[in-house]
């Protein structure tokens, strides 16, 4: 019941609101999605999500591979997993401030480098624009990858390695011909999940970006908070629909990949 009221109805009202508002049908708002400005925002969002998903997936997979050799009960592994959980899921605003404190104008590392190397790398304000977003997003994408990819890595059974060894495989052959092919669907699936995660993320960008609305979530905020002034009533609905569409597309692809993975994990 709660889910119905607070989740399903809002979603449906987004879909309806994007074409029907104040008693009139209109595809104008959907059309506005294909403005040059809206398309540019969408492209920036896709680039941001794509780059951070790829980098996060690769580095996250490496980190997961590093900690999988510790037993699940070890304190070290629990530490890493708990920290990953916090950073990946509950960070939001806090992560923006973490980077402002580190490499912002007055950041700890900024000042240290300035004192010791006489170089001010923060002066251009890149942290508050797309490059900064990429860095901060990567900071929460890697931990998310660790969390979603670790179960797949654990699913690689010891017996398979032993079988490969007893058949005379080298370590490299085992990795290339057994481990990588088995892990590929899980890896791609996790990458898609990371993409959706970055695409829908809002809090970090809202706290970090100082001017302009370079990505779709911020454009939605803009449409929500100033739609009366600009007279573009309901554009927020259309943008939200666009977001649902992209995320749904990615999740469907994810589902297909996962179905492939679970075949051998069962």
């Amino acid at each position: 019941m709660l889910v119905l009221i607070f989740l399903v109805i809002p979603t449906i009202s987004v879909v309806i609101g994007s074409v029907y508002l104040d008693g009139a049908f209109s595809f104008g708002r959907i059309g506005a999605l294909f403005d040059a400005a809206s398309l540019r925002t969408l492209r920036t969002s896709v680039v941001l999500s794509g780059v951070t998903a790829l980098v996060g997936a690769v580095l996250g997979a490496v980190l997961a591979w590093l900690i999988v050799s510790s037993p699940p009960t070890s304190v070290f592994r629990r530490l890493v997993v708990s920290l990953s959980s916090v950073l990946a899921q509950f960070g939001g605003v806090a992560l923006a401030f973490a980077f402002i404190a580190t490499i912002g104008f007055q950041g700890v590392v900024t000042l240290w480098v300035k004192d010791h190397l006489g170089l001010n790398f923060a002066s251009s304000g890149w942290l508050y624009e797309l490059p900064g977003l990429i860095l901060v997003y990567t900071y929460f994408q890697i931990p998310l990858m660790v969390i979603v990819f670790l179960p797949a890595l654990e699913g690689l059974r010891e017996e398979w390695r032993e079988a490969a060894v007893s058949l005379g495989a080298t370590r490299w052959q085992y990795l290339r011909e057994v481990a990588f092919p088995l892990l590929t669907p899980a890896f791609l699936g996790s990458t898609l999940l990371l993409f959706a995660n970055a695409f829908a993320a809002y809090a970090t960008a809202a706290a970090l970006v100082s001017q302009g609305n370079p990505i779709v979530p911020l454009l939605i905020k803009n449409a929500l908070t100033s739609e009366v002034v600009l007279g573009q009533a309901g554009f927020g609905y259309a943008l939200a629909l666009e977001m649902v569409f992209v995320v749904a597309l990615v999740m469907i692809a994810y589902n297909l990949l996962v179905r492939r993975t679970s075949r051998w994990l069962q």
């Binding site: 889910v3 009221i5 979603t11 009202s13 987004v14 809002y202 939605i220 939200a240």
Partner: peptide
């Protein structure tokens, strides 16, 4: 289900509710 629907979308649709 809530995992697959971005919070931002919920907000946009939630005004009426």
């Amino acid at each position: 289900l809530p995992l697959t629907i971005p919070a931002l979308v919920i907000v946009v649709g939630l005004k009426g509710v």
